[in-house]
Write a protein that binds this DNA or RNA. Structure first.
Length: 856
RNA sequence: GCCGGGAUGGCGGAAUCGGUAGACGCAGCGGAUUCAAAAUCCGCCGCUGGUAACAGUGUGGGGGUUCGAGUCCCCCUCCCGGCACCA
């Protein structure tokens, strides 16, 4: 055995051996129980960052633990390879996104392999390869024919200078990231998945996911946002014809308090009114500036303008003015809202600003309405109707029922369940994505590409320039014939949202080589995924889309289960400071934390010593260049230290501000472990302790050993809290280092403890563990250690003594002592007597096995 | 703005079901070893007062429930994530 711990040597040897013997190949035909352990696949941005290391180490610990427990484990890996950063890199470096992406994949695969993850690389896939996306196109055509996918207009960010659609990320303070031009909203046709058809099932299905974190289920439920309300109409007459303005409200009980209605700038009524009113046309134009992001819409100043039009109140017939509001979203609900300033905060602010009437119609006992105190009760459903004619005195539910019934009788409304969730628009005016398999024919319309003509292959030699979708300029791609009539036709050049690819990759891993269809029978052998691991930032969008897609595939007969992921672990983000400099035209250049020094005088760039601006702590991301590269860590200390430190730094669900202070300690621990094993092995072979009498010190160590096995198993399997598992093994090793004695029986306990400790660390630090176990037990396979209940038995325990809840001492009592005996021993103790001062205690609380609290 | 989460020593964190606050590790300090340094080993280490024993105090801030609160309830501050075209 080597005296020194040489990580690079043992890690290379172990990895070479794993590759040679295909150790981590998942068997499709095994009769052992399956464990499908999946980590969210990475976007191939160039290099791994610490967030990846954290994610994939968590997955690897769980995969390796279950393998040691006898499961047939599948842990695959692939690449979420389409996306915007490749186009940005193309623009910056004049390389095709395909070449850039493939080079990144090669580099990152090497990095992942150097970390020693137990991945079945034979199942590797990349979403940008035609043999993957052809099946996505195939499903698209099926769903299009079924009507689950349809086409409608939708609003996007438009850069009028670059003549291109911008992602929300590319809109910075209302301006295009490259041109600096004011961004406008523009309506274009897009394809949509009818996810709202599945809203109820996506919501109720959350109840069948006990293995998901509550916070994720709450976020998804709120996102879907089921609300029961009333859809109702305000009749009006315009240009000689009768029409109705529809709105949706969850507060129909306040209908009598409506003092105006507000419509979106894009609403037909607004467009019509603007024809006669130039200042309104100008205002509508102003509303079209800015991004479509909801956060921007919600934080901007609320503005409006009177259209001059009036609609009739559906119950009273009173004339109600119609306003255009920049905060009303055309894409949500009816594109119009009724406004009740007395009982809605936003309406109240709007009414105050434009001096619109405020009419309170909800009363609360012992409260009279005043503008000062309105916040306390404006939204309360606990009040009753006032100033509401025949509805006076009714509570929330009774009022809604009565008003809905009256509206229904007038055919001006009905109760309706509405979802906040909107249909999923998937058209992207981008090159580097999966082509939408549609052909536009003048005679036949939008024709889905027949299965035998799939895939529609994306040309890989294109270099985008930031001005529109370059596919539009590729005649060889665009020009085609109509599959139905054979006439010359145009191919759709929009590509799909990359969330589509990431919504079904987990299923394709079961059968990545199948070329006869999207999935084969192996999918149902492996699905659902037993453990899914990924960042909390995916709590809503990705995880909701994947759940939706699973149901789509189920309804196509491709999978048998209802939900894709049984257990979900949402890893906290690895966050780091961001640093930037601003050019005179307001553009930001971001600097990596590794290139910046921070001291009392502020932050400066290492390269030129000049100051940089501190941009705040954010998740590691390519766009802000704050990802910390783990390679230096691996080069310096080895993969095991990087893995150990990442798992030791914080529990997995907690966000972690990156700092490598402390990594030395993780490395020191591995060196100490190696030294302990080395010194023991030098003493000659000895069998692990198998029974018999032990000296007290060895007995105490064995007790600690088996307590540790119990704790570590629980920490990994149930709690998924690896930092405390590692701490427990560290404590055990500290105790083992202090255990003296070279006699056979003590050495046998030491053998037992070392074997178990090395096995318990194996999921976390697999290379050193395999090397050490091979020295401790040559030729024997490492298995997870089992708890010897007999070793845990104790005769006496220590109880804490409290007086009035304050700690005042301890007593030792027999484990079997009765409550009365414990109470008597506590009262008799010196520590308690001192505080009792001769008086009788008011109360004595005994918590068995823990403490005695005496109240005086 | 809305939804979800978080805040504990100089630092990362522990305390699993309301019961010893600070496990484990980092940094720091003292010592051993060494010609010296690195490495290693031993010890100390929340704050205040005290030579000490010990006492008081302490889990972002304010209030409450309880024999007992880091943990439960109410209010507030700040930080992180998401907000539908970053992935």
């Amino acid at each position: 055995m080597q005296e020194k711990y040489l990580p690079s040597e043992i890690e290379h040897a172990a990895q070479a051996q794993w590759t040679a013997s295909q150790t981590y190949r998942a068997r499709d035909d095994s009769d052992r129980p399956k464990y499908y352990c999946l980590s969210m696949f990475p976007y191939p941005s160039g290099r791994l960052h610490m967030g990846h290391v954290r994610n994939y180490t968590i997955g690897d610990v769980l995969a390796r633990y279950h393998a040691m427990r006898g499961f047939n484990v599948m842990q695959p890996m692939g690449w979420d390879a389409f996306g915007l950063p490749a186009e940005n890199a193309a623009i910056a470096n004049n390389v095709p996104p395909a070449a850039w992406t493939y080079a990144n994949i090669d580099h990152m695969r090497t990095q992942l392999q150097a970390l020693g993850f137990a991945i079945d690389w034979s199942r590797e896939l990349a979403t940008c390869k035609p043999d993957y996306y052809r099946w996505e196109q195939w499903l698209f055509t099926r769903l299009f024919e079924k009507g689950v996918i349809y086409k409608k207009m939708a609003t996007v960010n438009w850069d009028p200078v670059d003549q291109t659609v911008l992602a929300n990320e590319q809109v910075i303070e209302g301006r295009g990231w490259r041109s600096g031009a004011l961004v406008e909203k523009r309506d274009i046709p897009m394809y949509f998945f009818r996810i709202t058809q599945y809203a109820d099932e996506l919501l109720s299905g959350l109840d069948n996911l006990p293995g998901w974190p509550e916070r994720v289920k709450t976020m998804q439920a709120n996102w879907i946002g089921k609300s029961v309300g009333v859809r109702l109409a305000f009749p009006y007459e315009l240009d000689g014809s009768q029409d109705r303005l529809w709105v949706f409200t969850t507060r129909a009980d306040t209908l009598m308090g409506v003092t105006f209605v507000a419509v979106a700038a894009e609403h037909p009524l607004a467009t019509r009114a603007a024809q006669d009113k130039p200042e309104l046309a100008a205002f509508i134009n102003e509303c079209k500036q800015g991004s479509v992001a909801e956060a921007d819409m919600a934080t901007m100043e609320k503005k409006g303008m009177d259209t001059g039009l009036k609609v009739a109140h559906p119950l009273t017939g009173e004339a109600i003015p119609v306003w255009v509001g920049n905060y009303v979203l055309m894409s949500y609900g009816e594109g119009a809202v009724m406004a009740v300033p007395a009982h809605d905060e936003r309406d109240f602010g709007f009414a105050q600003k434009y001096a619109l009437p405020i009419k309170p119609v909800i009363g609360v006992e012992r409260e009279t309405f005043s503008l000062d105190g309105w916040e306390e009760w404006y939204a309360s459903k606990a009040g009753y109707c006032v100033n509401s004619g025949k509805y006076d005195g009714l509570g929330y539910e009774a009022a809604v029922d009565a008003i809905a019934a009256d509206l229904a009788a007038l055919k001006l409304g009905e109760k309706k369940t509405q979802f906040r969730l909107r249909d999923w628009g998937i058209s992207r005016q981008r090159y580097w994505g999966c082509p939408i398999p549609i052909v536009h024919c003048d005679a036949c319309g939008d024709v889905p590409v027949p299965a035998e003509q799939l895939p529609v292959v994306l040309p890989e030699d294109v270099v985008p320039d930031g001005a529109g979708n370059p596919l539009n300029r590729r005649a060889d791609f665009v020009n085609c014939t109509c599959p139905t009539c054979g006439a010359p036709a145009r191919r759709e050049t929009d590509t799909m949202d990359t969330f589509v690819e990431s919504s079904w990759y987990y299923a394709r891993y079961a059968c990545p080589d199948f070329d006869g269809g999207m999935l084969d029978a192996r999918a149902n052998k492996w699905l659902p995924v037993d453990q899914y691991i990924g960042g909390i930032e995916h709590a809503i969008l990705h995880l909701l889309y994947a759940r939706f897609f699973h149901k789509l595939m189920r309804d196509e007969g491709l999978v048998a289960s209802d939900e894709p992921f049984v257990n979900l672990l949402t890893q906290g983000m690895v966050i780091a400071n961001t640093y930037y400099r601003e050019t005179p035209d307001g553009k930001k250049t971001w600097f990596n934390p590794a290139d910046v020094v921070v001291d009392d005088s502020g932050a400066r760039l290492k390269a030129d010593g000049q100051p940089v601006i501190v941009g705040g702590i954010e998740k590691m991301a390519k766009s802000k260049n704050n990802g910390v590269d783990p390679q230096a860590l691996i080069d310096l200390y080895g993969a095991d230290t990087a893995r150990l430190f990442t798992m030791f730094a914080a529990p997995p669900e907690q966000s972690l501000e990156w700092s490598d202070a402390g990594v030395e300690g993780a490395h020191r621990f591995l060196k100490r472990l190696w030294k302990l094993a080395y010194e023991h092995v030098q003493g000659g072979a000895v069998a692990a302790f198998a029974g018999g009498e032990l000296p007290d010190a060895a007995k105490a160590l064995r007790r600690q050993l088996h307590q540790t096995i119990h704790k570590v198993s629980d920490d990994i399997e149930r709690r998924k809290q690896f930092n405390t598992a590692i701490a427990a093994v560290m404590e055990l090793m500290n105790a083992l280092a202090k255990l003296d004695g070279a006699d056979a029986v003590t050495r046998s306990v030491r053998q037992e403890a070392l074997e178990a400790a090395v096995a318990m660390l194996a999921p976390i630090v697999p290379h050193i563990s395999e090397a050490l176990f091979a020295e401790l037990r040559p030729g024997v396979a490492m298995v997870w250690p089992t708890v010897d209940e007999g070793a845990l038995v104790q005769d006496e325990i220590e109880l804490m003594l409290q007086v009035n809840g304050k700690l005042r001492g301890q007593i030792r009592v027999a484990v079997a002592a009765t409550r009365e005996a414990v109470e008597a021993a506590a009262l008799a103790s010196e520590a308690v007597q001192k505080y009792l001062d001769g008086q009788a205690p008011k109360k004595v609380v005994v918590v068995p096995g823990r403490l005695v609290n005496i109240v005086v």
